[in-house]
Design a protein around this nucleic acid. Structure first.
Length: 282
DNA sequence: TTCCAGGTGCATA
DNA sequence: TATGCACATGGA
């Protein structure tokens, strides 16, 4: 696709990443495609909150700037070393993905913190994106610690101070008790060790967490662990499947059929399709 | 007023 | 193992 060749797609400087390859990096698409909820819009970009770290993204016409004290962390977070041109080229052979890829060409799959992504997607269950963002923002404002003049995402230790009633009052609804329990079940060393596991074993482990079922587990695997051989099936993907494949299948069968089809690129395929569907372009 | 949203937990068969 | 229902909330 790209006629213009860059000497490099991005550059790391002290406290700054410059992204030149705008074709494969679109902050709006990356942040608003439903994979992350912990960001704020600013006058010329976004502020992103992940773990105890913060990045400010701004648009400078010929490049994007990512200002952060944690350059290496956000290089990995935005998956900058991965060649999305190559991924899109491979996926474009699927007719069903051609328009979604064109529509969301600047999407990248974020590598989120495991605790953040667990909390985020427990809240996401049977919920909508606007409300998920609001709930998470209230949790962050009430329990997060101040960092560089910003309130960072709360850690496990921060959220151990939150009661079930606190989560209720922040709008989590019936998910409050899931959150209360999940915070206590989370163990960073254990979760990190699961990185070496197969996707099937990882899913089995994650489903043991309160409020984590098959779909939330798949989202944690995709957006936290970077597992690409999963295809989270929510109501939008179920509707998509019924429209373009077969009607009246359950989510488990849909997920199996779609991972069979897209293999180790399933996660990417899912995200292009999801963003396309929720944007009303289909 | 009713429906819906990045579903899960639990009881039941 | 599979199915059906309850579940908080707020915007459309």
């Amino acid at each position: 696709m790209s006629q213009k060749k860059f000497e490099k797609n991005y550059e790391k400087l002290p406290d700054l990443i410059i992204v030149y390859d705008r074709e494969n990096f679109n902050p709006r698409q990356i942040l608003e495609c439903g994979q992350i909820f912990t960001y704020e819009k600013t006058s010329n970009g976004y502020t992103v909150f992940s773990r105890d770290k913060i990045a400010k993204i701004s648009d400078h016409g010929d490049c994007y700037l990512i200002e952060t004290k944690d350059v290496d962390y956000f290089e990995n977070f935005f998956d900058l070393k991965t060649d999305y041109g190559e991924i899109k080229k491979k996926l474009s052979k699927y007719e069903i993905l051609k328009r979604p890829i064109e529509f969301g060409q600047g999407i990248r799959i974020i590598k989120q913190d495991l605790f953040d992504v667990m909390i985020s997607f427990i809240i996401s269950a049977n919920n909508n994106i606007k409300r998920i963002q609001k709930i998470l923002n209230r949790v962050k404002e009430k329990f997060g610690s101040v960092r560089d003049g910003y309130i960072a995402m709360p850690t496990k230790e921060d959220l151990l101070k939150a009661s079930e009633k606190d989560f209720e009052e922040l709008g989590a609804g019936y998910r409050a008790k899931y959150l209360y329990n999940a915070v206590r079940q989370f163990d960073r060393d254990k979760f990190e060790n699961w990185r070496n596991d197969t996707s099937d074993n990882l899913r089995k482990n994650l489903i043991q967490i309160s409020g984590v079922g098959p779909k939330v587990a798949d989202c944690i695997m995709l957006f936290g662990y970077g597992k690409q051989d999963v295809f989270p099936v929510d109501i939008w993907m179920k509707n998509m499947y019924e429209k373009y494949y077969h009607p009246e299948e359950n989510r488990k069968i849909i997920a199996k059929n779609l991972t069979d089809e897209f293999g180790n690129l399933s996660g990417y395929a899912q995200q292009y399709l999801y963003y396309y569907m929720i944007s009303g372009e289909s």
